[in-house]
């Protein structure tokens, strides 16, 4: 009796974010179908630009979701996630410059590089807290940034061409779009499992009350480091996709404004909310586009929207959309 009550209770807590009930399932099916059909529509109606925009949104959604794991669920304000994003992208360009184009080499190598970078940065910076953590992650990011632009061979300040890797078949723009969607879905599924697992609970417990989390037996530092590395790897994967999308990498992808941009997305979408990264990235890409086409002062208006979210919707847009807690 007790057990049944519990599972009903807990089931209700867990359900809202994942589809439940027929109308929601229909809504989901329609959404997925239109996402899949989008390239055909784009092709038919000449919306090439919008396909590019959608790809960009999907890639940034992946990067922001990766960041949300540490920023939202871990409560760790990493101000250096551009490092993993940029390194993932640069790995594609640099390997291509060195004659390596095979996707099965480039992709794992790029993600491994980002994983190692996150491990190194996380191992040091997670020994600090608060403002110091922010500054150390920023400092590492700046080191990587200046390190990369010092390589004249790899374009220095000017950036580098990044031809698409060889998957064994020609990769069109629509192909990059589908690949981005596929990887976004896969990573979101992974993240969903992770944040609802005992590990995810431990991560959130350490965010809410570190001393208490340690006192009930959670090894806070290893848990946070693990999350940091996973987060870096996912954001790095987004970087690889971005290189495939733009076919060009520039040092700005490694710069601190890029880190800030990713943080904006998470804050806009909802810090520590599962859909925060996705909603934030899509919203920011759309906002920038709308204001960009309307005025040269578009950044001012984007800033005002962010201000409004920070002041009036502290749970972010996904919090507003959902209208309830889970």
């Amino acid at each position: 009796m007790r057990a049944r009550n519990l599972s009903v209770e807990v089931g209700r807590r867990a359900a809202p974010a994942w589809p439940a009930g027929a109308p929601r399932a229909l809504l989901w099916a329609a959404g997925v179908a239109s996402l899949l059909a989008f390239p055909y529509a784009a092709d038919t109606f000449g919306w090439d630009f919008y396909l590019s925009l959608a790809t960009k949104a999907a890639v940034l959604a992946l990067a922001a979701s990766g960041l949300n794991l540490v920023l939202g669920y871990g409560g760790l304000v990493s101000f250096g996630h551009a490092t993993y994003f940029g390194l993932g992208a640069y790995a594609v360009a640099v390997l291509s410059r060195e004659g390596v184009q095979a996707a099965w080499v480039v992709w794992p190598a790029a993600v491994a590089l980002c994983t190692l970078a996150a491990l190194a940065v996380g191992a040091v910076s997670l020994r600090t807290r608060g403002l110091y953590f922010i500054m150390i992650t920023l400092a590492f990011a700046q080191m990587v940034y200046y390190g990369v632009i010092s390589f004249k061979r790899y374009g220095g300040q000017d950036g580098l061409r990044a031809p698409r890797t060889d998957l064994g078949f020609p990769l069109t723009d629509a192909g990059v779009y589908y690949l981005s969607l596929l990887l976004l879905a896969a990573c979101l599924f992974l993240l969903w499992r992770v944040v609802h697992s005992p590990f995810g609970r431990a991560l959130q417990a350490a965010r809410d009350n570190e001393l208490r989390a340690a006192s009930v037996g959670f090894p806070v530092y290893p848990v946070q480091l693990y999350a940091f590395v996973l987060s870096g790897a996912i954001t790095g994967l987004a970087g690889v996709l971005m290189a495939h999308h733009t076919q060009y990498v520039s040092p700005s992808m490694l710069s601190w404004p890029q880190s800030g941009h990713l943080m904006f997305m998470v804050i806009l979408g909802g810090v520590g909310r599962f859909w925060g990264g996705v909603v934030g990235a899509v919203a920011l890409v759309l906002l920038e586009e709308v204001f960009h086409s309307a005025t040269v002062h578009w950044q001012l208006f984007v800033g005002l929207v962010l201000l409004a979210v920070a002041l009036f919707a502290t749970r972010g847009l996904s919090g507003l959309l959902e209208g309830r807690r889970w």
Binding site: S7, V10, G11, R13, A14, R193, V194, H196, S197, P198, F199, G200, R201, A202, F218, P219, P222, V223, Y226
Partner: peptide, 9 residues
């Protein structure tokens, strides 16, 4: 604490 896959529920 590194059980990453199965939900707590």
């Amino acid at each position: 604490p590194f059980r990453l896959w199965h939900p707590v529920e």
